[in-house]
Design a binder for these strands. Structure first.
Lengths: 205, 205
DNA sequence: TAAAGACTATACTCACGAGTAACTTGTATT
DNA sequence: AATACAAGTTACTCGTGAGTATAGTCTTTA
């Protein structure tokens, strides 16, 4: 904790620095994947952007597949956290759902969140693909659970939770394809407006 | 027109056969692109599936980029046709929109339609990418136009046509990612149910 | 019947990019 | 001081897959 300005870093500082570098690699990679696509981005490109050489990336992450897997994991973890947080909230099922959806939309405007929806399963190698799918399924289940809760307590119009889940997820995932980070509106505003629009559809009349 | 069963095909038959072969290449390619992904599918693979060799594909289509471009064009053309047909229909703006959305959903369960939503712009080479984007923008414009019409004649709840367009397009495009052609429900049923769900959101109360 | 053109195959070239070997330098450990 | 490890580098290998050169067959046309 007592960070002296000594040129000799402590073990703690060094491990923190290592983590920061690893993160920087992921951040650079995910930006380029989102801009140019995974297959159009070589690890040489990523390394060049960071001003290092390719083996450096291999030093921090095993291989290209790992890099992508870590990126999507970071996005999916955010979503999972958002789901857990929403479910723990007081209020009606509809309230919790709206909270979750809003956060979901925001995450889709984040680098790692965008990567999740822009990454096709097949881009990953079999093992990673399995993990990726499992995580996505968890999100799906969480969403369906929230919907089912709302329908059960009457705060949501009755219907098929699975179908509604697909519709909502689709509408929000799509953000990751059209949203420009340089746009005029703040992510927060977009999220709110979009969720309000969607809410008209599932709230009872 | 008078197809004799002579072993000597007429010029008309031959050109029809050529078109059929070209189509078969595209059909085989798009199926494999959808299943395994564009980058994971080599033209050798496609050729093998058809029982021919790679140069045969190059004989009918210039290169891999062309193959993909033709596939997405076939999907986009269907969407454009659907938009034109819907706009020509009598009834309220909302009626026309619902018709279009239903057809839109169905197309996303078709081989070529799925290819459209599963294809990232960057997979195409610059020229093709420009064409691809231009076509997609046309669809977007059509959708927004239908929405604006409905809002203007009062058959749709007022709101931001652009945002609603994104929400609807997203919900329906997503079908191309989750729908399994082998599923229990018929595409038609899925389309109808999904659009009904969405319509709850944009019809006036 | 000769020449041209359509269609298909075999067998290449060639670039690209993932991943690695081997080496350098600095820092921590014993 | 010696050794081991961390963090990089340069300079490779090597598989894959897009695209092509060349040749062969069959059909149509002059």
């Amino acid at each position: 904790m007592n960070d002296l300005d000594s040129p000799f870093p402590t073990a703690r500082q060094r491990s923190r620095e290592r983590a920061a570098k690893r993160e920087a690699v992921l951040r650079a990679a995910v930006r380029m994947f989102n801009e140019r696509g995974f297959h159009q981005t070589s690890l040489d490109d990523v390394a060049a952007r960071l001003g290092v050489s390719k083996p450096t990336i291999y030093h921090y992450l095993g291989n290209k597949d790992q890099v992508l897997l870590e990126c999507v994991k970071l996005g999916l973890t955010q979503l999972l956290d958002a789901a857990a947080a929403s479910r723990a909230l007081p209020g009606t099922g509809a309230d919790r759902l709206v909270t979750f959806l809003t956060r979901y939309a925001e995450i889709n405007m984040d680098d790692f969140g965008r990567c999740v929806v822009r990454t096709r399963d097949e881009a990953l190698e079999p093992d990673s693909r399995t993990k990726f799918r499992a995580l996505k399924r968890q999100i799906d289940d969480q969403l369906r659970g929230l919907i089912a809760d709302g329908m059960a307590d009457g705060s949501l119009a009755p219907g098929d939770p699975k179908l509604l889940g697909f519709a909502l997820a689709g509408a929000l995932n799509w953000i990751g394809h059209w949203h420009e980070p340089t746009g005029a509106l703040a992510p927060n505003d977009i999220a709110r407006q979009l969720v309000t629009t969607l809410a008209r559809g599932f709230l009872p009349r």
